[in-house]
């Protein structure tokens, strides 16, 4: 429950940052917040008694958390990081040309 609340709050803060901030970099931060919120929610999927998803050969019966969300999140994080890197690169290039990263002064974004 608390995790869901956190997730929703983070998600909405991220969306707010995308929708209300006038700076492209803040928009990227917002996007990352949104992604991070979903990842956070994914890995808090604790169904049974926790424990690291690594088998201890000495105690093979130890409980283990569901490893799949972790694997999925790992994959998704890498994807998210890649997209962010690309987006930042493009913003850097755009800044070099337009000398601004204010959304309102970039008229081309509107069309």
């Amino acid at each position: 429950m608390i995790y869901s609340l956190c997730f929703v709050a983070l998600f909405m803060i991220g969306l707010y940052s995308i929708l209300a901030q006038r700076d492209l970099i803040k928009m990227v931060i917002g996007l990352n917040l949104v992604e991070g919120a979903v990842f956070f929610w994914t890995i808090t999927m604790v169904r049974e008694a926790g424990g690291v998803p690594i088998v201890d050969l000495a105690f093979p019966e130890l409980p283990m958390v569901d490893p799949i969300p972790q694997a999925l999140t790992l994959t998704a994080i890498v994807i998210s990081a890649s997209t962010t890197a690309l987006l930042l690169t493009i913003i850097v290039e755009l800044n070099r040309m337009a000398r601004t990263i204010e959304i309102d002064s970039l008229k081309g974004l509107r069309e």
């Binding site: 998803p53 690594i54 088998v55 490893p67 972790q70 790992l74």
Partner: peptide, 9 residues
């Protein structure tokens, strides 16, 4: 493998 996440990945 012992690391289940690695095994999945």
């Amino acid at each position: 493998a012992l690391n289940t996440v690695s095994a999945i990945l």
